[in-house]
Design a protein around this nucleic acid. Structure first.
Lengths: 244, 244
DNA sequence: GAGTGGTCTAGACCACCCG
DNA sequence: GGGTGGTCTAGACCACTCG
């Protein structure tokens, strides 16, 4: 039993979680039905009940299972698409949908932080930040103007690099600097295109824009990036899933 | 030790979690700093390490702490506002901000489900649903047209009730019927007001609308409600926080 | 090597739900 | 009363990080 852990370095609760997930997804455990009790399953997998509960807790967090005290553990009726409960980035998202995406760098330089940027990044007004402004395309159509600000104090290396090679994988760059993206807070508004935006996004002045402000944080809570994002209303929607 | 559990019925890990949370929020444990090791803390609280880890895991989920294997457990630098990572409803939200909110019922009747509604609620096209359409006001300003559909099969009781008394607490009504709101998936778009919307929301035709579609689910994954929501762009924004 | 978190055990008693 | 999940223990060994 413990041998299994040691052989491949994969914890038992991860293997059991995977096994249970397969049973749920392939229908061995049917939607709405009770799965075997924790005692039964721990005997079946040859582990202690605590270990088995670790696996089940993970699957409950994913929304695949739910518990009713004194009754049992059940398969949820509806399985939420996992993608939408997670923070993802534009290029990941679009490429998963099989779309051709590209971008053009409009601006890239160090500037002093304005009030809102400084506040979001936990800096003082005027502290140095790097501004990366890009225009993003899906299949040759311009869809998004993207204006990101990152603290110079954390990411000054970027100025010595070729921005064209980094701009499509900023999150990877952050991670290589020791700041892995873990959480984000975003605010969404409906706006209208002004002349500049209309021009860049090939739309009419006054056409709807899905406006997004977002701050990204690493696991330790350091603000990594503050972003303004202007999305063509007719080409772009945002899906999120939330817990009560 | 166990006495504590029995006296008031509050589990130890909940008490310890609360104690740790207080130490973090009042600054006894400072942002970015290491808290005592798990062994130390479990001795301090007089519990086993597994119980202590239960408390810490909860605080990590909340974003207050993070772990680094082989190093220690640390207080996160930034504490996300908890409100925004959770599904909340209009009246809760606005009243917490101290605003006067009200609503007018525009439509309330049983109809056959159209394709999109049926699909979201896991019904067949034409299955009976209840439509509740309302206009919502903040401080006498109309801000939202709200069009909810709920399965007749689950909530037929509503037809015998006074909708005016229930419409501001639909989630409470769902819960009293045995379906507690637990998860939701929403999709957001920027649109423009057509003549009807412009009229209802006292705005000009073509003005920006933050459009939202949302499906609510109970813990067991049953779809409870499907919603179309048209929000005045100049009065309404939506904030969400997400995990990577 | 010392200290830390990651995993795991083999039990135990309790609270809850249902027939 | 019997079955279920909820909580808890007192250890153990491992993997990782750092000085």
């Amino acid at each position: 039993m413990d041998d299994l852990t040691k052989l491949d370095g994969v914890p038992l609760y991860v293997k059991i979680r995977q096994s249970l997930r397969e049973n749920i997804l392939n229908g061995s455990y049917k939607r709405g039905e009770k799965i075997p009790s924790e005692e039964e399953l721990s005997a079946q997998y040859g582990v202690s009940r605590m270990t088995l509960r670790h696996s089940i807790n993970d699957l409950i967090d994913e929304g695949l299972l739910y518990r009713r005290q004194g009754v049992g553990t059940f398969v949820a009726h509806h399985h939420l698409a996992r993608d939408h409960s997670r923070l993802t980035n534009f290029f990941e998202n679009s490429r998963m949908d099989g779309l051709q995406v590209s971008e053009k760098v409009l601006d890239f330089r160090q500037i002093p932080a304005k009030y809102q940027v400084a506040k979001a990044l936990n800096l003082k007004e005027g502290d140095p930040v790097i501004c990366i402004k890009t225009l993003r395309f899906i299949e040759t159509e311009p869809v998004t103007v993207h204006e990101a600000y990152i603290p110079m104090a954390l990411f000054s290396d970027l100025l010595n690099m070729d921005i064209e090679s980094q701009s499509q994988d900023l999150w990877g760059f952050y991670e290589r600097c020791g700041y892995k993206v873990k959480r984000g807070v975003q605010r969404l508004e409906a706006r209208q295109a002004d002349e500049d935006l209309a021009d860049m996004l090939s739309m009419q002045v006054g056409a709807p824009i899905l406006y997004k402000e977002r701050t990204l944080f690493s696991e330790d809570g350091t603000p990594i990036e503050f972003l303004y994002c202007f999305n063509r209303g007719d080409m772009y929607s945002i899906t999120v899933s939330l817990l009560r």
